[in-house]
Design a protein around this nucleic acid. Structure first.
Lengths: 170, 170
DNA sequence: CACTTGTTTCACAAACTTGTGAAGTTAAGA
DNA sequence: TCTTAACTTCACAAGTTTGTGAAACAAGTG
């Protein structure tokens, strides 16, 4: 979990200082995409960890945050399915991990967002009147989100398939 | 812009009270999807307006908010391309409008988000080492976002084409 | 050119969010 | 059963964000 001084580094090995910078950089992008700060940092830290698995203590240490902050962030990450927790029998510590294919899950879960928009729009069509200009506009918008709700999961499925095929022919 | 009392309503005509509820409901969904409250409300109001076009005064009146709030919200909406402003010659008022096909634009603009994630991840691969487990995981994640950055615009393009074809054969 | 209507800017108060220390809870190990 | 390490919950202080009133600014109109 540590690397040599810069002057004699193997360019293919881990550079802790650079890894730390990456964690903050990636967390920042996630934050800009709407994720809260601590969950973003915690997630990035686990992502950059070689095992993809850290204890709460390791997280607190790595990010210099309180156990309370770790607890809050991990609870959130687990809730939205971006991390999960494991504890081996006869272990006191929880290990937080991110799967190797969690991204499909997360993006796939945008589905409810689009469906939610489509549902809200559905009720709007009646409110403004089916045959009004607003009605037509809202209906078209609804159709678009229904399309996304259907096609995006299919897109991700396609990626999954391609990946599996690539692993078969490396 | 107004409708009869409930008791004698035409079910295909506009129901102002229901429309108002829709505006708040849809704004709430947008808010949950990460949009700020006022821009979400203003956008929803214009979406539900029959002309798809409102003056700042109409917006303030409809949503019971100050001119300052309208100004801030419209500035934001225009900046991200969800609304634009028009003023006819010899008019004192600005009219804010949303196009009939703005959604493609907006979702299409997620592209930079995915590209941004892919970029940040790219730098992470070197930081943790190309041939480490973390390196492989980050690389795979980057590939996934590059895939999305490429495929989602294509998806939207496809919708556009289908729409145009539908309009040709109604 | 002054008046009037409409929009933007700005400073601020209120409301909300965030991360912390400290106390409380849980469960492994002796 | 008691001890202790690990995690969670809670109240709060600090920091942000949000929407407002008031004042400044722009642009038609008489």
């Amino acid at each position: 979990m540590s690397s040599r001084p810069q002057s004699q580094r193997d360019p293919d090995a881990r550079d802790d200082e650079a890894a730390r910078r990456f964690v903050e950089k990636f967390a920042l992008v996630l934050t800009q995409a709407g994720m809260a700060r601590m969950p973003a940092r915690v997630f990035s830290a686990i992502l950059a960890d070689d095992d993809g698995e850290m204890t709460a203590g390791e997280i607190a240490e790595a990010l210099q945050i309180s156990p309370a902050a770790v607890s809050g962030a991990t609870r959130y990450l687990m809730q939205i399915g971006m991390a999960h927790r494991e504890r081996k029998p006869g272990e006191r510590r929880d290990h937080y991990l991110i799967g190797d294919d969690f991204w499909y899950e997360i993006i796939g879960k945008r589905d409810p967002v689009y469906s939610g928009l489509a549902d809200a729009l559905e009720s709007g069509i009646d409110a403004v009147g089916k045959d009004t200009r607003a009605g037509a506009r809202i209906e078209q918008t609804r159709d678009f989100f229904m399309y996304l709700a259907k096609e995006i999961p299919a897109l991700i499925e396609r990626w999954r398939d391609e990946r599996i095929r690539d692993l078969g022919h490396p």
